[in-house]
Design a protein around this nucleic acid. Structure first.
Length: 259
DNA sequence: ATGGTAGAACATCTA
């Protein structure tokens, strides 16, 4: 048996719903974490997703942000706020699904190094770090996944020289990500693949996808014992080739289960 | 050369 857990920044669930439903039908993951759903809770397509065999829990917001967890089994102990952070932006949802604590993050982009949004990004990551320290201490299997808006290393960037110390690649951002990992989490993609870029995002502009000008900024992290059971972590580029694609591709990890 | 595209409040903001 195996547990398959995926993440996808869909850049508007309204626009991408048919693509998401088709992908669920094709891949049948146990869990799909969505970011940038860009719709309010009242607008969330609960019924359509249910018709495809998935429960939904969500933290929606009009126009910007918004995150959700879709799961074949009912999510429990749902949390929609980063503890200790007074934040009107909906970027966090956590739930327990099939005994695994799942934390879905849409990390702040930050716009430009040194900007107000950049300071907010680092504050936001600090609050998430404090929360993850407690979640790791609890000792349950833990998965932290989503759009991290940080390329962990230069090998995760198509042109590291051009991006040096720019947003998504700056040293303070990478250090903040390293602190999240240091709570006791492993990057499942890197654990299994030390060579290829594994890009998950390509800019809509300047033919980014056609030229493979990408970055690996969507991640699936797992607590150590769970990471030991990770057998696969792959980017599915197929939806990025579709008509009206999201600028992100889905990432899917598979974990073998003991029984 | 600081551009380009996409999605949302459809005028600017965010990414």
């Amino acid at each position: 048996m195996a547990l398959r857990i995926a993440t996808w920044n869909v850049n508007s669930l309204r626009v991408r719903l048919d693509q998401v439903l088709a992908w669920l039908d094709a891949q049948r993951p146990d869990v799909l974490a969505l970011q940038e759903i860009k719709l309010s809770d009242e607008q969330f397509p609960v019924a359509e997703i249910e018709e495809h065999g998935y429960h939904s829990v969500y933290a929606g917001q009009k126009t910007y942000n918004g995150v959700a967890l879709l799961a074949r089994r009912r999510p429990e102990a749902v949390r929609r706020e980063v503890p200790g952070l007074d934040d009107p932006q909906k970027r966090f949802i956590a739930a327990t699904i099939e005994g695994v604590r799942i934390v879905n993050l849409y990390v702040v982009n930050g716009q430009a190094v040194g900007s107000e949004k950049y300071a907010y990004k680092l504050r936001w990551l600090d609050a998430v770090h404090a929360y993850l320290v407690k979640e790791v201490e609890a000792g349950r299997p833990l998965v932290v996944l989503g759009d991290f808006n940080i390329a962990p290393e230069d090998r995760d960037v198509y042109d590291p020289q051009a991006w040096r110390e720019r947003i998504l690649c700056s040293t303070p951002e990478r250090e903040a990500l390293a602190r999240l990992l240091a709570t006791g989490l492993e990057d499942t993609y890197r654990r299994l693949d030390t060579e290829s870029g594994g890009y998950t995002w390509w800019d809509y502009r300047a033919a980014g996808f056609r030229r493979d000008h990408g970055m690996r900024i969507d991640l699936i992290l797992a607590s150590r014992a769970l990471a030991d059971r990770c057998t696969r972590c792959t980017v599915d580029r197929e939806p990025r080739r579709a008509e009206r694609p999201s600028d992100h591709a889905p990432l899917i990890a598979e974990f073998s289960t003991a029984d």
